[in-house]
């Protein structure tokens, strides 16, 4: 087995271990770790099965095999970012609702306090 292959297998495994550690220590939520785990798994598959990249490149009609790797990487990262945009949209909708609710509650509290004074 060539040195580079061993290195990439070890790399994929360490990424997976880092992910597991992050989830274990609750710094990364399970639901947000899934995509990263999937990507780490893809890395591992390509490291172990070296011909897969050649096969894939051939099937896609890509002459230079590493270019296929970049393509996979870019698509993967694109999907992760898109996923985050969806999450951010959801979060901003929620903070907006909270903001409005706080404003309304403040008005109601002020009114109650005034009534109490009278």
């Amino acid at each position: 087995m060539p040195f580079f292959q061993i290195l990439s297998i070890l790399g994929s495994i360490s990424i997976t271990l880092i992910l597991i550690e992050l989830v274990k220590s609750r710094r990364l939520k399970e639901s947000y770790s899934l995509l990263w785990f999937a990507i780490a798994f893809v890395f591992l598959v390509f490291s172990v099965w070296r011909d897969l990249l050649e096969l894939l490149a051939k099937a896609l009609g890509i002459g230079y095999a590493p270019a296929a790797l970049f393509l996979i990487l870019i698509i993967g990262l694109y999907l992760v970012s898109l996923h985050y945009s969806v999450v951010i949209s959801r979060l901003s909708e929620r903070t907006k609702n909270l903001n409005q609710e706080i404003g309304i509650l403040n008005l109601k509290i002020r009114k109650l306090e005034e009534e109490k004074k009278d």
Partner: peptide
Amino acid sequence: AKLINLPYNLGIGGAVQAGFKYAMG
């Protein structure tokens, strides 16, 4: 006048909707 102070700037739509929510309630 009744006054709703939003904690941070939401933009016109968010402000109007806050008023709608109050009126609905």
